[in-house]
Amino acid sequence: MKDKLNSNRSRTFLAITIPIVILFFVFNTMAVIQGFGYSLTNFKGFGGYDFVGLRNYIDLFSDERIINSYIFTFGFAIICTILVNIISLVLALGLSSKIRAQGALRAIYFLPNILGGLVIGYVFNFFFTYILPGIGEAINSGALSNSLLASPKTAWFALVITVAWQAVALNTLIYISGLQTVPEDVYEAGAIDGAVGFKKFKNITFPLIMPFFTINMVLCMKNFLMVFDQVVSLTGGGPARSTESISFLIYSGGLSGGAFGYQSANAVIFFVVIVTISIFQLRFLNSKEEQL
């Protein structure tokens, strides 16, 4: 009886697992292995190719365009991560306090998360190209009259605003759920001890939501390092390649730039970098988390 039950269970288990494993292997693992294979060739994306060994990897480190895109992407990801976490923490604290229409406000602040990155990029493109300069002209502001997207000095900032606007939604939600895990009586004990205002946040709230901070930091850093949709729809990597993120470079250089093999090597390196950073972040932040 027990054996039959076990065999039924294992059959169900296999029936559910095997298709997913096959799909994952074909569309993910195979692609990664194939990509790694191409990274050792001079494949242009079409036609024939030769095996070039580690040449692509060696060349990557002296390619100024790639180095610039790494510098841009890391700078962008760090600024965005800091900005998004500060804003969403403040918003979460506000939305968790005793305010009117709390549920409705939470829903409104979550809206950007359900929109696609491309859609948001095009909406903000319109905003930065027409609406903001229009306002700038109306108030005679020279700085605002030109589109932020037009200058290499300001385009990255427009990208930060667009990406952060969307990312704040999910981060806020995660922080709100974190804040709900802090027992009310701990705050009350704090109020009697004198932990009010910023002291309350620093000594009670923040240490107790540290696990949620870790998750948000890792998710943010990973997502922002891989920024792609908003670059495509907002700047196309420009002006003057000033907003060319690594993902965008891999895509544009690999598919339309005739350097599929070379950008595959870039993708492999990028994969290793992201995994390393995520593991480092998790280890470091976990050690800071209070074991409750």
Binding site: D185, V186, A189, A191, I192, L208
Partner: peptide, 18 residues
């Protein structure tokens, strides 16, 4: 509360878990 010169013991202890 902090200026009332009182101390309170709560039902669920309300210790700072961290």
């Amino acid at each position: 509360p902090k200026d009332r010169d009182i101390a309170m013991v709560f039902q669920n202890y309300a210790l700072y878990p961290h």
